[in-house]
Amino acid sequence: MAAVAEQPRRLRRRGPHARREARIGLLFVLPAFVLFVLFRFGPSIAGVLLGFTDYSLMDSPKFTGLDNFTRLWDDPVFWSSLKVTVLYTVITVPGTIIAALGLALLTRRAFRGSKLFRSIFFLPVVTSLVLASTVFIWIFSTDGPWSTVMSLVGGHTGSWLADDVFVVPALAIVGIWSRFGYGMLILLASLQNVPRELEEAALTDGAGPWQRFRHIIAPSLKPALFFLAVIETTASFQVFDAVYVMTGGGPANASYTLVFQLYDAGFKYFDLGYASAIGLALFVLTLIVAIIQRLVIGKEK
């Protein structure tokens, strides 16, 4: 950091040189800056503004104040898709984190084949959910593997994707499958933080595995768990690809999520103002949940 602090003094001394540096710096940033203005800053502001208009791409936007938001409040489909999205998140995020944690603890110490296991567990993360969905449709089909296994263990038989109660759990299973490998890697990295001396000491004192986990391992995992919870919640709130391919939001809107509603409002009905309002609602929701997670996990510490 010392070098950074020294820089300004050095630059100020060499006036023309500093100006040249500044010019070159700006020049190097310029291409990225232009793209950011066009495709990030501009659309971020426009996205907020559009939420207060009625716009269909054919005519120019009409300012309608809070209309879109009152409409959203009264829209049963919005509440239903919010419920579906939250339900999906409530299953997927803990499921992903628990699976990730368990597997991270199991593959924590190197052993013959540990590398292979980690590679296998990460493979779904790099796989497109669209491609995976094409085979999961078969797995969840009426006489497919999942239904067969379920009927053997006495669970709900028939296609989970065609059932309005089980469709979200089915999608959540796909979500967990596709994400736990990522969480595992994050946690594996964090597990290196666990003070070895403490662990050894605890072992000598005869502490059991749970006690060791609770008092020695868990505290050092906290930042990583918080990070994972935020990342996974954000991702779950935006679930779309698998739903689009596997269920189309059905049956009877039972898997119709917020982003799906946003997509339909925007690109099926060209109700772009309303779609933007849904986008804003999603944004606010994500923020609120992140803050809550922060408070809960942060407080314990």
């Binding site: 489909v77 309005d164 049956p251 009877a252 809107n253 119709y256 099926k268 009905y269």
Partner: peptide, 18 residues
């Protein structure tokens, strides 16, 4: 067609007993 988009899932909901 837009009306169908909102009506069809509701008909489905009624038919599966929701």
């Amino acid at each position: 067609r837009d009306v169908m988009g909102v009506l069809a899932p509701e008909i489905q909901a009624a038919l599966i007993g929701n």
